[in-house]
Design a protein around this nucleic acid. Sequence first.
DNA 1: ATAGATAATCTATCACTGATAGATTCTTTC
DNA 2: GAAAGAATCTATCAGTGATAGATTATCTAT
Lengths: 188, 188
Amino acid sequence: MASPRERRYRIRQERIIEHARGIAESEGWAAVSTRRLAQQIDHSQPVIYQHFRSREHLVAAVVTQGFVELTSLIREASAAAGGGLEQLCWSYLDFGRQNPALYEAMFTRPTHLRFAQEDTPAELRESFEALAEVIVRAAGDRADEDVAALTELFWATCHGLTSLHLAGRIPGDHLKGQVERICTMIRG
Amino acid sequence: MASPRERRYRIRQERIIEHARGIAESEGWAAVSTRRLAQQIDHSQPVIYQHFRSREHLVAAVVTQGFVELTSLIREASAAAGGGLEQLCWSYLDFGRQNPALYEAMFTRPTHLRFAQEDTPAELRESFEALAEVIVRAAGDRADEDVAALTELFWATCHGLTSLHLAGRIPGDHLKGQVERICTMIRG
DNA sequence: ATAGATAATCTATCACTGATAGATTCTTTC
DNA sequence: GAAAGAATCTATCAGTGATAGATTATCTAT
């Protein structure tokens, strides 16, 4: 169905996204420039704008990919033996540790992507929904209102630890006890 | 003691910091440029570098000021009638809401400032210590190890809520119940 | 197969950024 | 008031995101 032209276009787009992510992880987002990306894919700089309306849209594409990965990670942790909150918590922390730049783009860098709204992309929604499912299972039967609030709280707490840890604001020395406390809090 | 020259130098430095903070709050950190700051204080652009080694050092100066304010805010919340965890939690959330750009610089933007280390500036340390004092009071007698872990956890949780809220990742609809849960978790 | 239309790509440029070198002016000190 | 020193300016550099317009490649229809 896809013409050769379209196929090449998509392949190139994937390459751009991959390189952007790679450069960000190894040298930080400031090092991700259109000229450098163009050089990596052997094209001139304006070609980047055939794929992304702006640099921010390019970053958003990386972010979307990140949420897809995070969703499947949540589902895996949920389906695994045990499948408890603790396991999910550790998976989340590991995700941040293994992809600090990606995580930074997903959660702390300014972006035009809006969350928890009508026009929120499906990929972002699904992460939240996957998380909510685990919360429901762990915290028993509750009103939808409570599930949303608990999911937010769980997410915020995991994010707070990850964010401060990645930014060098807190050491990781006390994570074990902290994770236990978080999970106890959520289970009620 | 201070010569007129030094006095003018310090006044100008304060003005630069104020303008940087003001621009950041109204238009975001990307709008804070050396040229624009120079224009605001009626000098040429390189003068900024008489005060700050780099743009990042300028941002760090704003951040330091932010931590001074956060510390006194924690002390006030701690000394106020009641002086409980809930009050502190709300004060923290308000601080973020009222100074989103400042908060962003303090906690989520990349910086050379290191925390929880030997060379950590006193202003940053004091915020943590002020927080730890409140935790000790609220959570009763504990080992120092536990106090540090609990303080980190409390901070991370408040930060997680603030951060995701400011970035538009979660709505603020469920804050009341979430704050209560956090405080219950800390008190143990 | 080839001419015409269309799409993709390139070169060149714009306005802007942080940062620095060197000439110039202002301040201070003797 | 003259010499020494510090502070400030102009001018510039290399790099950024983004765009306009010329050029080339690709596809379509005869």
